[in-house]
């Protein structure tokens, strides 16, 4: 597949909607792995005394890839396979941007779907071709409210 064909196929493509419950165990595993001991994320009684309905999910709980935690979505795996086929096998995580709109609590259900916003050609300092692939994901809670938007910038390096 040529680069033009990859762009034709992928820009604007949207992945399947996934629905995940934000459960206490996943929040616990997340904060332990980060080493974040904020009581809002760990102590349900404390969170309730601070006015929350339950444990607060930290803003970093939204994973790269559009799930309530970070399993790599199928759309991105398929995209990366095509990138390799087009001669861009070096995959790097370039960065991430979030807009947060509402607090998420344990017991909330989040639905999300990743979409490929754009593929931009650039050149590395060493003069190699690379692509910036922007993947955007909205997270919607069980009340239909937008809680966060995430934009991931993947870098695909040429051979």
């Amino acid at each position: 597949m040529t680069l033009e064909e990859v762009k034709q196929k992928w820009v604007g493509m949207k992945g399947d909607v996934t629905v995940n419950e934000v459960d206490k165990s996943s929040i616990k595993r997340h904060v332990e792995a980060v080493g974040d001991h904020n009581p809002l994320f760990q102590d349900e009684e404390h969170a309730q005394s601070a006015g929350h309905p339950g444990l607060v999910a930290p803003p970093a709980f939204f994973g790269r890839d559009a799930r309530a935690h970070n399993e790599f979505p199928k759309i991105m795996m398929d995209l990366l396979m095509d990138m390799m086929g087009a001669g861009y096998p070096g995959i790097l995580d370039g960065g991430v941007e979030y807009d947060f709109y509402r607090i998420v609590h344990a017991g909330d259900t989040l639905s999300s779907a990743a979409r490929v916003e754009g593929i931009t050609e650039k050149t590395t300092k060493a003069g190699k071709a690379m692509l910036f692939v922007a993947v955007v994901c909205d997270f919607i809670n069980q009340r239909g409210q937008l809680v966060a938007t995430q934009k991931t910038n993947l870098i695909c390096l040429a051979l």
């Binding site: 980060v34 080493g35 974040d36 904020n38 601070a50 803003p59 960065g95 941007e97 947060f100 910038n153």
Partner: peptide
């Protein structure tokens, strides 16, 4: 970096945006 911010802004602060480059 999220922890840096949420520790500092406290329980009544709200993180509205955050981004970083690797």
């Amino acid at each position: 970096l999220v922890q840096l911010m949420t520790n500092w802004i406290g329980e009544q602060g709200f993180l509205r945006k955050l981004g970083c480059q690797f």
